[in-house]
């Protein structure tokens, strides 16, 4: 089963290496990992999607907590969350197919962000399954290039940080 973890960590050289090194060394199966700034200067926020049973995820959380530069870890899998992923997809577009692609883009509330002579670049933001659906529908046209960010997640509502109430 897939689990979503959110981790906050000090924005210092080598911290990403510490986290990724931990996953490799402990043989954890990581589906995606995305990292960027958080609301606090000097603190990065990472969203990790990990494959495994409860026991594996429990270990991942505990081992992450042992890293000196990691300040907080939450397992948000069973919480109401807003989950998003962004993808840029460059798809072949000839005269005959261009309008069909644009139609799909509109249905998915995605956007065309670049128009070339033989291609269209599409941006979609949404839950992963919606991103996946669009990609599946675009594939027959010929996807030339694709970049996905991996999942980012945030607990809904409340008046504080993600999952603070359940933080260990």
């Amino acid at each position: 089963m897939k689990h979503t973890l959110v981790a906050l960590m000090e924005d210092k050289p080598g911290v990403l290496n510490r986290v990724s090194g931990l996953f490799r060394r402990r043989n954890y199966n990581i589906e995606s990992l995305s990292v960027g700034h958080s609301e606090t200067p000097g603190i990065s926020r990472m969203t990790i999607v990990v494959n495994g049973d409860e026991r594996v995820v429990d270990q991942v959380v505990k081992q992450l907590e042992k890293l000196v530069n990691v300040t907080q870890v939450w397992n948000v899998t069973n919480m109401p969350t807003v989950v998003r992923e962004l993808a840029l997809i460059k798809v072949k577009a000839a005269h005959g197919t261009r309008s069909e692609i644009v139609e799909l883009v509109n249905i998915f509330r995605a956007r065309v962000v670049d128009v070339g002579a033989t291609s269209l670049t599409i941006e979609i933001t949404g839950p992963e399954d919606r991103v996946n659906s669009l990609i599946d529908l675009l594939r027959p046209f010929g996807i030339e290039e694709m970049a996905r960010t991996g999942r980012v997640a945030m607990v809904r509502g409340g008046n504080g940080k993600s999952g603070e109430a359940t933080s260990r």
């Binding site: 050289p13 080598g14 290496n17 510490r18 090194g21 931990l22 060394r25 000196v68």
Partner: peptide
């Protein structure tokens, strides 16, 4: 050496 000892130290510094 900080890269090499990452998995065999509790923590390390450069």
């Amino acid at each position: 050496i900080t890269g090499i000892t990452l998995p065999i130290t509790k923590h390390n510094y450069l």
